[in-house]
Design a protein around this nucleic acid. Sequence first.
DNA 1: CCGGGCGGTTGACACGTTTCATCCCCATGG
DNA 2: CCATGGGGATGAAACGTGTCAACCGCCCGG
Lengths: 375, 375
Amino acid sequence: MTASIRDVARRAGVSLGTVSNVLNRPDQVGAASRERVLAAIAELGFVRNESARQLRAGTSRTIGLVVLDIANPFFTDVARGVEDVANEAGLAVILCNSDDLPAKEGAYLDLLAEQRVQGVLITPTAELSPHLAALRRRGVPVVLLDRRAPGPGQCAVTVDDVLGGRLAADHLLERGHRRIAFVGGSSGLPQVEERHAGVVAAVREELGGEDALTVFSPEKLTVAAGREAAAEIIGMPAARRPTAVVCANDLLALGMLQEMVRHGVRVPEEFAIVGYDDIDFAAAAAVPLTSVRKPRQELGRRAALLLLDEATRGPDHVHEQLVFEPVLVVRESSMVRRTGRSSAGGTTTPDTRRTVVGPHTTTPAGESPVTEESA
Amino acid sequence: MTASIRDVARRAGVSLGTVSNVLNRPDQVGAASRERVLAAIAELGFVRNESARQLRAGTSRTIGLVVLDIANPFFTDVARGVEDVANEAGLAVILCNSDDLPAKEGAYLDLLAEQRVQGVLITPTAELSPHLAALRRRGVPVVLLDRRAPGPGQCAVTVDDVLGGRLAADHLLERGHRRIAFVGGSSGLPQVEERHAGVVAAVREELGGEDALTVFSPEKLTVAAGREAAAEIIGMPAARRPTAVVCANDLLALGMLQEMVRHGVRVPEEFAIVGYDDIDFAAAAAVPLTSVRKPRQELGRRAALLLLDEATRGPDHVHEQLVFEPVLVVRESSMVRRTGRSSAGGTTTPDTRRTVVGPHTTTPAGESPVTEESA
DNA sequence: CCGGGCGGTTGACACGTTTCATCCCCATGG
DNA sequence: CCATGGGGATGAAACGTGTCAACCGCCCGG
């Protein structure tokens, strides 16, 4: 069928080992034979069989990346960061989309195990899959992405989501809101629960209780789910209806915004919205979205670097758990509009030191990670 | 290191071939030994080595998907369609992001060739890479995605982009626009050139010449590029400045919209915008975006099905070139707003039979593909 | 009692590559 | 002239699996 290294050797009139050397250590082979081999390779259209290479060498050239929702730009941004680092190291990335389904996640993890990937980056579903544990037991490096490690002895790259939730809620409370909703309640994802916890803490501190907080728990964190939650809110009696919402991610927030606008609810005058992740589309929304920014690409980069370190250094590797500080980006969706549309794009009143304004801030102050070492 | 099939055999007290049979033809093996083997597999945590399987079997369980921009939701939607079909067939997808760089594309194609993928789905960069031709020469099925085949003898799944450009332009012309811009001019991508051609044809037919058309040719088809183009347009003298634009994709359109709003230009009253692709975020934009809808997921599905057919049926496979008809989805960004904000979300005046209104139409009429067989 | 057939099992071989100990040849120095 | 060394080239072995022809034991029909 396809030409093998053996055919090349025959054609070039050299031995099999020489061809292999041309491929892997070109400098250790004489110029003359090297030329002949290269010519033969070109003539035969030889392409190295990676399976055979991998079988013999015992090491693959790929890593796995498992995300919750490939349609969420947050994850494609993360993926880009991962890809950059991986490519630089000569590795390919197998991108898997679990769709937040444990079954799909498990299947993909098995697949990655069979492929003998060098390591796995994963934003896991709510429960940590046994397949994951099995992988680690086999010695495959695993780095958690946007998900805190359950204990030491494992790398993780995360964002302080309690702080993020707190930033979002504080912002709304300072704006005078007294009835607030949180969408994304008990999806089971710890990231979301932590955002929730941050919101709860802020509300409790400011208002002395949680009565003011209404929690919605959609099935999925999608635009459609956001719309549904909005419909629910609209259906509430005015006296109990929240005047502002913190959404667990930007997709929810965008759906929320869409539905509100569709029903003629004015944002932010009648209803303020804060999203989470600060995907690029947040700034381009019907009403530019206030959102909690995470260093998306950097998240992927750092996670990939940790994975590579563990994969190459082996037992010398010291596990690290990176925690980035999120930053609130205030835009129109949470600002009471000034008189007469002053400067489009949005002015702001400084909230806390961490607050960043406008869609074009490239490197917010607090974006350097907080590191804790362990194990 | 890790347990092999041989260890399992020893542990279960059976021969090596029996283990292999348990793995691949469980029904051909006695219940007793099967149980013993399965037990041994569980105890040893055995995981089949895919490289070895592939080397021996000569066939891989993966296909490659190469896209132009992973950050563009259009491609993630396509990818989802591909993934669904592939998974159903027990195949994994290696998703590669060429970033519209021929060098990166070539590198990925080489990688896929070394992996001996069953086939490649690709939205290629402007020039058809020699690496692609090499792949096909080696007998690897290749299906072009959103890109017309240069000749017969090859599968392709596309959208009639000339028609799409025409729909967009006709719509604006009917609305009374007489100076129109097209952004995405000569990026070199045929898809874009065809959209351009459609716009040109419509303008020429309606106005008898192309003087009314201003063409912008950004480097990339991104949100940032859209902003820049908008700045250019704003900088033009009012007399020559276009009153409407057709963008080669929605990212450009969103950027355009953002910058216009930022400069206080009212959309659509002072400037109308039509995008292309109809990604989900188009409907959620600052001003909901009129866009040319393509069946994104279906595009991926059909392409994957063709690939599978070619990969499995081999020479019996008859190449197919699917052409979908796009549909114009009219939203606010191109509608002269009615008095007093009647019904939010947008009413419409029927344009042609193909025009579809509102963001929530799920299966537009003309979405069934037009098929042409060849070779 | 014998031959044939069949479900179940075996084990050698092949897949394409990398590795490594070995070997060859020539130049250099003693 | 011989010993030494080193740059190049060689080819056998091994990686873990799938395949397939052969084999074994047993039952059934004659």
